[in-house]
């Protein structure tokens, strides 16, 4: 029995040693990163975050909470790879064809100042919602907003604005016909 326990202990200690080494490897994150993104549309959206915690069968009572939040979504195009190869000029006809990528979601901002607790109800035998509980609910709300982006129409709107932007820029440069194509 002792030999068996000792064997388990030694094996497990080895596993824990490997896990401890992995835990100490940190991800290096650059504090400053250069980028080239053109934001073309901003959507302001609001959402109610609703949670009803009936609890497990052995918990008496329930707790409910309602939070409201506002988020600012910005969509546009990434110009990191944009270069002379993406612009095809016909000097005789004063015509230019510009190839740009489709728009993507560039940022989602859910400012803490615009988050409000609208309602909170906790019965006698339950703990109040902690800061961690509230933050966990808000994280889920943020994720739901992010996952709904394709259905909001923001990306199509950003594509349309990208077209108008490049048409305007190249027309100012003297081109008569500007064609914007998405890659």
């Amino acid at each position: 029995m002792i030999v068996l326990l000792l064997a388990v202990f030694l094996t497990a200690t080895g596993c824990r040693g490997r896990a401890a080494v992995e835990d100490t490897v940190q991800r290096e994150i650059e504090a400053i990163t250069a980028m080239k993104q053109l934001s073309l549309v901003e959507y302001r959206v609001s959402k109610i975050i609703k949670a009803d915690d009936d609890g497990a069968w052995y918990k008496i009572g329930d707790r409910k909470i309602l939070l409201s939040c506002t988020a600012y979504l910005k969509a546009g195009i990434d110009l990191a790879a944009f270069g002379p190869d993406d612009v095809d000029i016909d000097w005789t006809g004063k015509r230019v064809t510009v190839t740009i990528p489709h728009a993507t979601l560039l940022s989602l901002d859910m400012p803490p100042s615009e988050i409000r607790e609208e309602y909170d109800h906790v019965t006698m035998f339950r703990h109040s919602f902690s800061a961690e509980d509230r933050n966990a609910l808000l994280r889920q709300g943020e994720k739901q907003i992010r996952s709904s982006v394709p259905s909001l129409g923001i990306l199509e709107k950003a594509d349309e604005n990208a077209r108008r932007f490049f048409e305007s820029v190249f027309q100012k440069m003297g081109f008569e016909t500007v064609e914007v194509v998405f890659s």
Partner: peptide, 18 residues
């Protein structure tokens, strides 16, 4: 999710800070 306001913008983001 309620869309409250849509605004056309032209913002060139050239660096991020973390």
């Amino acid at each position: 999710i309620t869309v409250e306001h849509i605004k056309a913008i032209g913002e060139l983001v050239t660096a991020t800070w973390y």
